[in-house]
């Protein structure tokens, strides 16, 4: 099954990150590199991306066939999606195990969401 692992950021986590020493920051990034390599080796990784700052985001609205894009109302939102992993693995337990290796998990900012499949049992 596929699982989407969402990594959030909030004001505290952003502040914490900005206060880290260069070495601590390198350690955090290394944890990601190690995790990515391990997931590629097992064939479980489908894609992982980090998202740009929310101030660069656009909210899209279509009205009468016209699309308008505005700056998102994200500034007021406390928790924002900062990145994600899409993995394919045997069970949600395994997905949780993967999620626990993401540095943000130490702050409780990682969430595992099962992905809906197109295949199904005959009912």
């Amino acid at each position: 099954m596929k699982y989407l692992i969402l990594i959030y950021s909030n004001p505290e986590s952003r502040q914490l990150w900005s206060q880290l020493s260069a070495e601590q920051r390198r350690g955090g990034l290394e944890a990601y590199t190690t995790l990515n390599e391990a997931l590629a080796a097992t064939g479980e990784l489908i894609v992982t991306e980090a998202l740009a700052d929310p101030t660069t985001a656009r909210r899209v609205r279509v009205e009468a066939g016209q699309a308008t894009a505005t700056d998102g109302p994200f500034a007021e939102v406390k928790e924002l999606v900062a990145g994600f992993y899409l993995v394919e693995c045997d069970s949600i337990d395994r997905a949780v195990e993967i999620a626990a290796r993401i540095p943000e998990a130490a702050m409780g900012l990682v969430e595992v969401r099962p992905v809906m499949a197109l295949s199904g049992f005959e009912v």
Partner: peptide, 10 residues
Amino acid sequence: RTFSLPEQRY
């Protein structure tokens, strides 16, 4: 509770 879209619709 299902993880299958067709099942969910059904």
